[in-house]
Write a protein that binds this DNA or RNA. Structure first.
Length: 919
RNA sequence: GGGCAAGUGGCGGAAUGGUAUACGCUGUAGUCUCAAAAACUACUAGUCGCAAGGCUGUGUGGGUUCGACUCCCUCCUUGCCCACCA
């Protein structure tokens, strides 16, 4: 590694990249000792940097995958140079329908295909130069891994979290298997777009619903992208409401009741009919021919067809509204789903669009029961960037963050949000905080409930305001009353509701529940369903359960795990509701673990999402085969510090992983509640304005670019395209430009000044400015602007006669996370040390604020807000407004523009800008 | 229907309320060369002007401000996610 050897040599990425990748692996610089003890107070701390492992099903990685991995790797490399001990593992999520379908298409056995894919993927993953710990990979399809997947299933079964039940499930006729709710989109199979059928089958489920509230509340404790949290919240879909019993007015069905779920109990007097889902059990009691015909037809219809016009039929039944004893008809209609609530609703056509549509079509009565107060236009909800920041703060305090739903900022009266309001509000981040104007009128309140009850909130706010002594004076309660019922629909008072007339919406529900305890009770409903875990496919971990006629379902004893997936030739899906393994008695014939009698093994396999719901727990313990995860290592390395992946997994994988973690914690197997402390979603790579997909034929394979320009160029280009969270548009010409940039760096540092660097930095100001910028940008994952800052610095350095050693060293260190190979090469050339010490284990440059202070400042001169010139002043003078003013007026162009004008006002922002207001 | 983003040159994109278009790509001209490539230099929002400089410009229309891509309101457009969730 002599210095002279490389001087004047051309930049040859393929040579240096292969060289360094070999050395890194040999020196194990990316394989931390997982058993080492940490002093957590010291700099060297464990940092688990995780990225979503790929499905190795396609032809190979495209630049989209590469983009995601590189972006995550940049962060890991950055953390390593910050002094952390970084663990960055990778693996393959190779089990599952996705991989199996690909194998079938290739006419290959999935197990064979997996071997080929594994080789290909690992070759590609190595070629991008990520700092993966190659000594610890996880492949979900290998017995040494799925042994523990099955073991987890057994643990959940024993804890009562895995159970079997017959239920109408989603069945995809093309994939020939059942699917979880999450895998069905608008009634179509997420994978093949076939129309999903509903079938009654006995299946295995995980009781994820038991964790609904914890999954919801836990979101407040983790640092995730807001949009992902919102997606999860929406999926869990908690809604608080009430169950109402309607008695059936029919002698033959005496004492039978229909229960409905509603979130708008306050509109109960407006219920003019009831609607049952065609799947409602009560319907079997109805013999009307018309009804039977309708129900049969409705059941045949697919979800897509149902989404069309609302249709329905009168059931012939009537029920009694418990609050006013009105007799109202019961209809059966396709717009009510059996899967949510009770499968029956009370229809309030005056206050629900769907009910309204239906009522109009079938000429049913519409009674308005809420008088809203939207004439009070003075109540205005506002959003702004400031409010966004403020929301973040509130989230940090463990409160709910959502506009118009769980909390919001409300500003009353006035014209707009002045910074003053916000400043005051920002200082007092509690629900019910308020701000009143100098004249005493209430101007802003923070609230936190779906049903907003301003009087109470404001009361609290007022007390609270007094306590903390913020300005405000007297509240005008008369005015406050008016504001209270302002928001249409939700903020109003009851009408046509008998003795409840004039009651405020916000109070009506509680009052009704109080007065009709027999008929009405509070109820919380979730959109979240239990996780359907079994699949009638071949390529997955067999569910480790045995059915015995006398002992019922028994889990496979732990000593017998794994239940190995046998290699069978007829692995294609059957479509009979049974797995291909059901044709193999040599697999399913077994003995009951409890009574030793003949018994039958479960032949279904588990969902792929189970494999990926715990893989992050396995990575640190891949070398240990007597436990799924070593407790000591778990305590050191988990939860994951940073998780980076695609937003498309915001509900599926991320929700399941959280559920598993919580369940395992309850079983005492792990000691933390949330698996991923930080999660960031990366953007999508677009090609020619469209999402990359096989069908569009616009897939860009990374191999070609690595071959042509090297991994460093591709990595840096990908990170430069746009903000990492937003993705970007991939262009061939761009890669060429980045190659040029690296070549220039090579030329400048290796050929010229490296041989004879000067001792003094040419501009420490620019160097420190760049360190600050790059550091801050990488922390925020704004890689594009970090790279731009390096380019700017390069542009400056390339103009200088000589560059100091310090500058080169700092430069290559800042470049190292993006272009690890070239920076390692240059770093080694520069230091020429005998003992190898990688740049990637070196310390990240620190900026010194003293270099950021400028002696001379450029002050922009504006006249009436328009740029008219600038003046250069000494930093001491810049503090003196009068002097700056004098200098500014002297500037010739400024003189021209001030001619025949008189200065009314001068605004000076120190060291930045001076603005003359002149007429 | 609901939610979440986002609209800035020919293109990807920069801009704590303070010089709009950083950085890069593309394009044009030039240097070098027999020539080409590479490399390097200059220019590259529109418009008027020989120039100095001016005017117009961040989807639309308003507002707040000494000053707005940025904050507020109206409308338009696009992308993503969810969806007869009562």
């Amino acid at each position: 590694m002599s210095k002279l050897k490389s001087i004047n040599q051309k930049y040859n990425p393929s040579e240096i990249e292969a060289k360094w990748q070999k050395i890194w692996e040999k020196e194990k610089i990316y394989s931390p000792n997982l058993d080492m003890s940490f002093d957590f107070a010291q700099e060297l701390r464990p940092f688990y940097n995780l990225m979503m492992f790929p499905y190795p099903s396609a032809e190979g990685m495209h630049v989209g995958n590469m983009y995601a991995f590189t972006g995550a790797d940049v962060y890991g490399r950055f953390q390593r140079m910050q002094g952390k001990s970084v663990f960055e593992p990778i693996g393959l999520d190779g089990f599952g329908i996705h991989s199996e379908n690909y194998a079938i298409k290739q006419g290959m056995h999935p197990a064979e295909q997996a071997k080929i894919s594994e080789k290909n993927f690992y070759r590609q993953l190595k070629s991008i130069g990520n700092s993966f710990d190659w000594s610890r990979t996880v492949e979900t399809y290998k017995p040494e891994y799925y042994k523990w997947t099955q073991w987890l299933f057994v643990q959940l079964f024993k804890a009562g979290l895995a159970y079997r039940k017959k239920a109408p499930v989603n069945f995809c006729p093309s994939c020939k298997t059942v699917l979880a709710d999450e895998q069905v989109e608008r009634g179509l199979c997420e994978r093949c777009n076939s129309i999903i059928e509903k079938r009654d089958l006995e299946q295995w489920f995980f009781k994820i619903t038991k964790y609904a509230d914890r999954l919801l509340n836990g979101l407040n404790q983790i640092d995730w992208d807001e949009k992902i949290k919102i997606a999860q919240k929406q999926w869990i879909g908690k809604s608080e409401g009430a169950l109402v019993k309607f008695e059936i007015d029919d002698s033959r069905l005496k004492n039978k009741e229909i229960e409905v779920f509603t979130t708008r109990l306050d509109t109960l007097f407006g219920a003019t009919f009831l609607v049952l889902s065609p799947g409602h059990p009560l319907i079997t009691n109805i013999t009307k021919a018309e009804v039977k015909k309708y129900v049969e037809e409705a059941k045949k219809k697919t979800v897509i067809e149902k989404a069309g016009e609302k249709t329905g039929v009168f059931s012939g039944l009537y029920v009694i509204n418990p609050v006013n004893n009105e007799k109202i008809p019961v209809w059966i209609a396709n717009y009510v789903l059996m899967g949510y609530g009770t499968g029956a609703i009370m229809a309030v056509p005056a206050h629900d669009q769907r009910d309204h549509d239906f009522a109009i079509k079938y000429k049913l009565p519409i009674i308005k029961v809420i008088q809203s107060y939207n004439e009070f236009q003075s109540l205005i909800m506002r959003k702004s960037v400031k409010v966004k920041e403020f929301k973040k703060d509130i989230a940090a305090k463990g409160m709910y963050v959502k506009d118009y739903y769980d909390w919001g900022l409300i500003v009353i009266g006035g014209d707009y949000i002045k910074n003053d309001y916000l400043k005051i509000i920002q200082n007092h981040l509690l629900p019910g905080s308020w701000y009143a104007d100098a004249d005493g009128s209430l101007r802003a309140v923070i609230f936190k409930n779906k049903i907003f009850t301003l009087p109470d909130e404001a009361d609290e706010a007022f007390k609270y305001g007094k306590e903390i002594g913020i300005s405000g004076g007297q509240l005008d309660w008369q005015t406050k009353e008016n504001y209270a019922y302002c928001y249409e629909g939700i903020y109003g008072k009851l009408i046509n509701s008998g003795r409840f007339d004039n009651l405020q919406v916000s109070q009506a529900s509680d009052r009704l529940i109080e007065l009709f305890p027999e008929k009405i009770r509070k109820e919380i409903n979730y959109h979240l369903r239990d996780w359907l875990i079994s699949r009638q496919r071949y390529w997955g971990p067999p569910i480790p359960m045995i059915y015995c006629e006398s002992c019922d379902w028994q889990s496979v004893p732990e000593k017998d795990l794994p239940v190995e997936l046998p290699f069978i030739k007829d692995y294609k899906p059957l479509g009979t509701g049974k797995s291909p393994l059901a044709n193999h008695p040599e697999f399913y014939k077994t003995k009951c673990p409890k009574c030793q009698k003949e018994a039958k093994r479960e032949t279904d396999v588990s969902d792929t999402f189970l494999d990926s719901a715990w893989y992050f727990l396995r990575y640190p313990s891949t070398d240990i085969d007597n436990t799924a995860f070593d407790m000591e290592r778990l305590k050191k390395w988990l939860p994951v510090n940073m998780y980076i992946g695609g937003a498309e997994h915001s509900v599926l994988h991320l929700l399941y992983s959280r559920f598993m973690t919580m369940a395992l914690k309850d079983l005492g197997l792990i000691n933390f509640e949330e698996p991923f402390t930080q999660f960031r979603a990366h953007g999508l790579i677009i090609k020619d304005g469209a999402k990359m997909s096989k069908s569009k034929g616009n897939i860009v394979v990374s191999d070609l670019y690595i071959k042509k320009f090297g991994a460093d160029t591709l990595r840096t280009y990908l990170m430069f395209m746009g903000p990492f969270s937003q993705g970007g548009d991939f262009r061939d010409t761009g890669t060429g430009g980045m190659f040029k940039f690296l070549k220039r760096i090579w030329a400048l540092f290796s050929a010229g000044p490296v041989g004879s660097p000067s001792s003094v930095a040419t501009s420490p100001q620019i160097m420190h400015k760049t360190i600050k910028k790059v550091t801050g940008d990488i922390e925020k994952l704004n890689y594009n602007t970090a790279i731009a800052a390096l380019m700017e610095w390069y542009n400056f350095l390339s103009q200088q006669k000589s560059v100091s050693k310090e500058e080169i060293e700092v430069f290559v260190k800042l470049l190292a996370p993006f272009a690890p190979h070239i920076s390692e090469e240059l770093y080694q050339l520069l230091n020429g040390k005998k003992e190898f010490s990688s740049i990637h284990n070196s310390s990240w440059p620190k900026f010194d604020p003293k270099f950021l202070v400028k002696n001379e400042l450029i002050i922009v001169v504006q006249i009436n807000g328009k740029l008219r010139g600038n003046i250069v002043v000494d930093s001491a003078i810049s503090k003196n407004k009068t002097k700056v003013e004098e200098l500014a007026i002297k500037e010739s162009n400024v003189q021209n523009h001030l001619k025949s004008k008189s200065i009314k006002k001068v605004i000076y922002i120190q060291g930045k800008i001076i603005n003359f207001v002149a007429v």
